[in-house]
């Protein structure tokens, strides 16, 4: 292990990543895209008994431009799919997507002409929370997994290498 690797710049960026990741994971502004049954469990998670606020994700923003986690809660039908895509496109980077409930993961037992077989056919997904609907504990577990993912992501290199792939609008 040479001293060269511990250059000042490298150390600062890794530390910065950690700090930003730590800060980001506890200030999740979620956009609940609620369509169906899972919304009931979403309400239960958000309210007093299970209290999602303990994990720093207590404040839903109902505007895609102000939120960084898109929670897709409930079945997505073919009629709904273009709207979901549009909402996702309107969100600013960095953004994450949580598939809440088995309908969003795979389509669940709605294998039919009207239902999208998993939202990952439309938009990228970071965390899948299975269950029909998932129990609040499962949701919180999924949220913690997302927080780990957020904390582990490198922020600085992406900024440093400003080759900008997503900005060519």
């Amino acid at each position: 292990m040479g001293l060269g690797n511990l250059s000042i710049g490298g150390m600062i960026t890794t530390r910065l990543d950690k700090a930003i990741g730590w800060a980001q994971k506890f200030s999740i502004f979620q956009y609940p895209f609620i369509t169906a049954c899972c919304g009931m469990e979403y309400m239960a998670v958000a309210c007093s008994h299970y209290d999602i606020d303990r994990f720093g994700a207590g404040l839903p923003r109902f505007s895609p431009r102000q939120s960084d986690v898109l929670m897709v809660v409930g079945t997505i039908s073919h009629k709904q799919a273009p709207i979901l895509k549009k909402i996702y496109d309107q969100m600013c980077e960095p953004k994450w997507v949580v598939a809440f409930g088995v309908c969003t993961c795979t389509g669940g037992f709605y294998d039919n002409y009207a239902t999208v077989q998993g939202i990952d056919t439309i938009i990228p997904v970071d965390v899948y929370i299975p269950g029909c609907p998932p129990r609040p504990e499962t949701v919180l577990d999924g949220l913690i997994k997302l927080q780990k993912k957020i904390a582990g992501e490198a922020v600085a290199p992406a900024n440093a290498g400003a080759t900008s792939t997503s900005m060519d609008v």
């Binding site: 073919h78 799919a81 273009p82 709207i83 895509k85 549009k86 496109d89 294998d111 039919n112 002409y113 999208v116 439309i122």
Partner: peptide
């Protein structure tokens, strides 16, 4: 029951 039709591209009628 499972005859799917292509999803309409966004930007249409929403």
């Amino acid at each position: 029951y499972n005859k799917r039709q292509p999803i309409v591209k966004p930007g249409g009628n929403i």
